[in-house]
Write a protein that binds this DNA or RNA. Sequence first.
DNA 1: ATAAATAGTGAATCATTATTCATTCTTTGT
DNA 2: ACAAAGAATGAATAATGATTCACTATTTAT
Lengths: 210, 210
Amino acid sequence: MAYRETEKMRNRKAEARKRIIECTYGCVADGGFRSAQITRIAACAGVATGTIYRHFESKEDLFAEIFRIATQREVDKVAEALSAEDNAVSRLEVALRQFAERALRGPVMAWSLIAEPVDPKVEEERLKFRRAYAQLFEQAIRDGIKEGCLPDQDARQSSTCLVGAIAESLVGPLSPAQADTAEQAETNDHNPLVNSIICFCMQGLTGTRR
Amino acid sequence: MAYRETEKMRNRKAEARKRIIECTYGCVADGGFRSAQITRIAACAGVATGTIYRHFESKEDLFAEIFRIATQREVDKVAEALSAEDNAVSRLEVALRQFAERALRGPVMAWSLIAEPVDPKVEEERLKFRRAYAQLFEQAIRDGIKEGCLPDQDARQSSTCLVGAIAESLVGPLSPAQADTAEQAETNDHNPLVNSIICFCMQGLTGTRR
DNA sequence: ATAAATAGTGAATCATTATTCATTCTTTGT
DNA sequence: ACAAAGAATGAATAATGATTCACTATTTAT
């Protein structure tokens, strides 16, 4: 025997892998999954196209991983907002605002995560992503019901509606055609758009029954 | 001169066009846009692939038209529900139910219209489609505010949230993986899913302020 | 230094479909 | 019947971009 993988090599490979991931992330944040071709990613990462395939089974797998990473960041932020020491209604409100404002701040990535057409494996991740959000909200809603600050309701269904209402409200402002409009939001953190969305959502949660 | 387009020919061409549209509609309703390849559509319509291009500029154009037609049907149904003689709140509730129930009854088409990845030109139609719904709801909300049965609110924003909440709630049940679950709905018109969605939405609209 | 083992390369290949266009078939008016 | 005009055909082409793989380079242990 002559060659055996050594620490040094392992590190180098890990770095290359990391670089590929970062470049893919960058490409997606910049122009969506559509614009992230293997050739471009490879060039950006300073490796040959073939090298990508030493680190990932396929483009779909790479994309799925990028999606997971990007998603995790967002979900973590919302989870953080929901774990504050406060009543459920306030926590939900802060979390919803976090969700919407972050999306408006990174519109291309948000659009990719929410609405860009993607391949099946990535779409699968998207469903998980949405469910992850919904589950966080769902738990908070249950808390709220227990605390008595929310009326009894189908927590799962309400959480799904929350995700939908926010996502839909953002699709317009986020769609590539209107990136400029969204950019304004970057400099304006008292965004009336966000306020209206949250108003509807909070009413949906807290409103009295007819 | 020897040949000039005659009524008979115009009819025949119109029929061919109609047949192409119907077959495309059928393919989409059956397996989504993805499964509607030109070859298959042509075979189904009993014409050569080239013939498709005598009637439509491109596949995208054909799809965009199909999308418009399918959409119009749905939007019309909602518009109908909203034009009833009743107060705005009741009309909105009936319309929302119409929207959701029709989607569950034709899950593949609904999925294609709401969530299937499609090409840019078709995606454009989708945005219009969603806006068309939103506009209908928006007007009804304005009516409701005027009538006094809805509290003052940003009608446009609320309507967008309505569309989002419903669409999101349906994406899970509609996604191709779960076509079977949706089929149950076909035989069960007292669907609890629909009721929960509508409950949230109506609260979002009517709820008291905190 | 040498050889075994693995890593990296990138031009060539493959796969998928939409689209074209040279050709054939139909219709129409004389 | 004939020829002009247009309609229909579908095999061939084009375009795109992911993936492969024969080859070169590098690393390691002796």
